[in-house]
């Protein structure tokens, strides 16, 4: 029956369209389902997971001491050359020469947050910070020195 099929087709087609319209109407009327985060407004409540890879930082304790020995493992592990370790020789009180870092230069603009440097570090001197708002007007600001000025190595870290 041609006519019967014709009418049947029309009804099944309209039904399938109405099912979809019911779904969108549901969301139109249920505003609680909205999942948008209003980002710059929710800065205070925004919590990033502790493993989030934002940028490489070097934690210092309250005496301005870090754990970096200047072994350059991170520099070797980095695929992009975004870390450069500049070492110097400290004279310890008993007159021995000891290798230490002068500067640990970190190029944020080259970094891909692959976490390989953090993995490679034998003394847990560097870690990933949970920051992500990295935009600056001058790209020189993206080249960072990770160790604080005047900082020295923590006692007992070899």
């Amino acid at each position: 029956m041609f006519i019967k099929n014709y009418i049947k087709n029309i009804f099944s087609a309209v039904k399938s369209l109405l099912v979809g319209m019911k779904r969108t109407l549901y969301y139109f009327t249920h505003h609680k389902e909205i999942i948008t985060q209003q980002y710059p407004d929710n800065r205070d409540t925004l919590i990033l997971p502790e493993r989030f890879k934002g940028e490489v930082v070097m934690p210092h304790n309250e005496n301005n001491e870090h754990r970096c020995t200047g072994c350059t493992a991170c520099e070797l592990a980095c695929p992009n050359g975004s870390i450069k370790v500049i070492t110097k020789f400290d004279i310890s009180p008993d007159g021995k020469k000891k290798k230490a870092i002068d500067k640990l230069v970190y190029h944020l603009e080259l970094c891909t947050m692959c976490n390989l440097c953090v993995e490679a570090c034998p003394s847990d001197a560097i870690k990933m910070a949970q920051t992500f708002e990295h935009s600056v007007y001058d790209r020189n600001q993206l080249t960072k020195t990770l160790n604080n000025p005047g900082s020295k190595i923590m006692d007992g870290v070899e």
């Binding site: 969108t24 969301y27 139109f28 389902e33 909205i34």
Partner: peptide, 9 residues
Amino acid sequence: VSAWMQIRL
């Protein structure tokens, strides 16, 4: 209308 149907604000 489009935003509310698409679970947006």
